[in-house]
């Protein structure tokens, strides 16, 4: 099973919808509770990164019996220093977004922490591709 959702820049009304749909689908196919929880965190953070930082993008979930792949592809400014972006507390989110409780510099660190495998590629002024794998198991953290 594979599903892809369009994610729009600065659309805080629909933010979280894609992650919510992925959650429902994973529950329907009977993935482990812990797998669903980790997938929700990864999917929501990836979705919010597109909403906050990119011009537009997509969030994709590929469901296999033993694992789940969550991918986020965006057209946007790209990440100049990927190591820095993974540093907890580092954020380039604008002030009005931080006031809502986003942009704490925990998005990518959360994605790394709750996924089992992660690949990221980014080109300045082109966009960012993020691929994560989450294995379907009861305690994966």
């Amino acid at each position: 099973m594979e599903m892809t959702f369009d994610v729009k820049s600065m659309d805080f009304k629909r933010a979280g919808e894609a992650a919510g749909k992925i959650k429902k689908a994973l529950q329907l196919v009977g993935m482990e509770i812990d797998t669903v929880r980790r997938a929700v965190i990864v999917a929501y953070e990836a979705e919010m990164n597109i909403v906050i930082h990119a011009r537009q993008g997509t969030l994709t979930a590929k469901v296999h019996p033993d694992r789940l792949e969550i991918e986020a592809n965006d057209e946007g400014p790209g990440i100049p220093d990927i190591d820095l972006a993974f540093q907890e507390g580092y954020s380039t989110a604008p002030e009005h977004v931080r006031e809502m409780g986003f942009g704490a510099g925990m998005g990518l660190p959360n994605i790394k922490r709750f996924s089992d495998d992660l690949e990221i590629e980014s080109k300045i002024d082109v966009g960012t591709q993020l691929k994560t794998i989450i294995y379907n198991q009861t305690s994966g953290e």
Binding site: F12, A15, V40, I41, E45, G101, A104, M106, N110
Partner: peptide
């Protein structure tokens, strides 16, 4: 929100100053 997402447990009551739809 990222901290809550990562640490809140199902069934918890979430205490926050935020009041927006997110």
């Amino acid at each position: 929100l990222s901290d809550v997402l990562a640490h809140v447990a199902p069934g918890d009551l979430w205490v926050t100053i935020h009041r927006h739809r997110n």
